[in-house]
Each structure stands twice: as structure tokens, then as C-alpha cells.
């Protein structure tokens, strides 16, 4: 029984982890149909913000929950203004330009901070016992954060005026623009919010993984495949794909090993896309957010 609970928690944590690392990408993809290849680097930047600011004596929780999203969000807005807005409607070129951005960010961080970062921060909150097993309190915290974050995004999209404008732009950008919405501003804010969420995820994961200039590469494969499997609906897509792929990943990881878990996740996603080429929300949950 204790084993079952521990295992279930582990799988739920895997799902929460997928939600966290994919949500920022999903916001940008759902709104703008842009796959941001610099997504991993936004996560990486969030981690660096936390490590550097806590090394300078900033409170860890303040750095994680407020500083990292704000800083990375601002970087996102700047990137959108300087780079992405020149490429609207040219999807392939946007992909390539964000890949260039990804390399530039890796290069900049490596030049400034070196290829290795020695100082890391340990995960707070200690261990939580479950019968004869125990689980990390910080992982439980991350599960809670993933749930809260999803709920906040849902409420913001569903019940606020900004959310309404955002949904309108998502469905029919030209119509929204004809009704007086500045779609260019909506896109800039969207990109900023997406970047902020990615930075937030990076900040939360930094105590578990440490930071490296190239750490983005370890997240992007999973994040991309989750978002694409989910389809364009931001929340329904991300959560349904995370539950499905995270569940498969967790079970196979437990049975065989973590790498085979990743392989199983990928194979499942490829088969899923063969059956539903436009993702889960392209076929079912179509009207969802």
C-alpha cells in the first residue's frame, strides 16, 4: 500500500513536471502558432536567476516565485519586439530564428558564467515519510504549484478581460484586430507571459537539477513532444498530453528504467500523432482552452 502511494506520487510528480516545463511553450504555441526553440534556454535563464540571486543573499522563495518569472518575462518581451515580430506568418523562419536565439543565449551564458556552475542550491522542505517509504517535500510542493499554475491560467483566460482578448486573438486574429484589439501588443504580452512561465519552471527546478548553460536541451525534447501531442488548446492540450505521456513515462521508468521511460514517452507520442496529427485537442476537447 505504501509502495503504491509512493509510486502514484512519483507518477503524479512526473506529470506535474511535464506540465511545468511545457506550459510556457504551450501558451506561446497556442496563441501564436509559434514553436519557440529557445524555450529550453528560457528555463535555463530562470534557473540562473535563482542561483545568482540567492548567492547574493536574496531569499530563495522570493527569487523563485517572483524574481525569475519577472526577469525572464521581460527578456521574452524584448525578444518578441526585436526578433519574433519581424517573422510573423513565416513559421519556418520563426523556428530557425528562435533556434539562433537559443544558441546565442547558451553562448552568452557560457561566456559570462563559464561552462560549469559550481554553486548550487539544495532543495528546501526536506523529506516526507509515507509509511516505510519517504518522498521529497519539495516534489509535493512542485505538484501543488503545477496545479495552482494551471488553475490560474484557466481563470485568467476564462474570466478576465485580458483573457477574453487573448482568446479572441487566438481564434481569429484578423477579426480581433478589426474590432480594435492591438494584436501586436497581445502577441508581445503572450510571448512575455510564456517566457515568464518557462522562467518560473526553470527557477522551480533549479534546486533539483542545478544549472548549466546547456541544461535547456534536457527539457526541450519532452516539452516539445508534450505540446505537440496536446495540440493548440493551451490548458486542455498540455494537461491531457502530460497525463498521458507522463503516466506512460512513469510506469515504464518504474518497470525498466528512466531512459527507457523517455523512449516509451516518445514512441507513444509518435504513434499518437499518427492517429491524431493535430494533437489530442485537434480531435477531442476541441472547444476547450
Amino acid at each position: 500500500m505504501d509502495l503504491a502511494i509512493a509510486l502514484a506520487l512519483q507518477i503524479i510528480y512526473g506529470i506535474a513536471n511535464l506540465v511545468l516545463i511545457s506550459l510556457g511553450l504551450a501558451i506561446i504555441f497556442g496563441m501564436m502558432r509559434v514553436i519557440n526553440l529557445a524555450h529550453g534556454e528560457f528555463i535555463m535563464l530562470g534557473g540562473y536567476v535563482v542561483v545568482i540571486s540567492t548567492n547574493h543573499g536574496v531569499n530563495l522563495w522570493f527569487a523563485m516565485l517572483i524574481l525569475a518569472p519577472v526577469v525572464v518575462g521581460l527578456i521574452g518581451v524584448i525578444v518578441e519586439r526585436l526578433l519574433i515580430r519581424h517573422l510573423y506568418g513565416r513559421m519556418v523562419d520563426t523556428l530557425l530564428a528562435t533556434w539562433g536565439l537559443s544558441l546565442v543565449l547558451i553562448g552568452l551564458i557560457t561566456t559570462i558564467f563559464g561552462a560549469q556552475t559550481a554553486t548550487t542550491i539544495s532543495a528546501p522542505l526536506g523529506a516526507v515519510p509515507i509509511g516505510e517509504y519517504s518522498t521529497s517535500g519539495y516534489e509535493l510542493f512542485l505538484i501543488a504549484v503545477a496545479i495552482v499554475l494551471s488553475v490560474v491560467v484557466y481563470l485568467a483566460l476564462k474570466f478576465t478581460r485580458i483573457g477574453l482578448v487573448a482568446r479572441g486573438t487566438m481564434q481569429a486574429a484578423d477579426m480581433a484586430s478589426a474590432l480594435g484589439v492591438s494584436t501586436s501588443k497581445v502577441y508581445a504580452i503572450t510571448f512575455g507571459v510564456g517566457a515568464a512561465v518557462s522562467g518560473f519552471a526553470g527557477a522551480l527546478l533549479a534546486p533539483l537539477t542545478g544549472v548549466l548553460p546547456t541544461i535547456g536541451a534536457t527539457y526541450i525534447a519532452k516539452a516539445f513532444i508534450t505540446v505537440i501531442s496536446g495540440g493548440t488548446a493551451i490548458l486542455a492540450g498540455t494537461t491531457s498530453a502530460s497525463v498521458l505521456l507522463g503516466g506512460i513515462n512513469g510506469i515504464v521508468s518504474f518497470g525498466i528504467g528512466p531512459t527507457m521511460g523517455e523512449v516509451a514517452l516518445l514512441v507513444a507520442a509518435v504513434i499518437l500523432l499518427r492517429l491524431m496529427p493535430r494533437g489530442i485537442t485537434g480531435r477531442i476537447f476541441r472547444k476547450s482552452l
Binding site: L83, H86, A97, G100, G107, T110
Partner: peptide
Amino acid sequence: ASINNNLVLGIILIVFVLLVP
């Protein structure tokens, strides 16, 4: 050692996509 390969390649990629597509 002072110039990072990633940085140079990234700049090349961005410049080509924007200016010499």
C-alpha cells in the same frame, strides 16, 4: 577561448534568417 562557438553560430543563424533568408 574568448569567443564561444554557440554565440557565433547563433548570430550567423539569426542574421541569415532575417537578412539573407
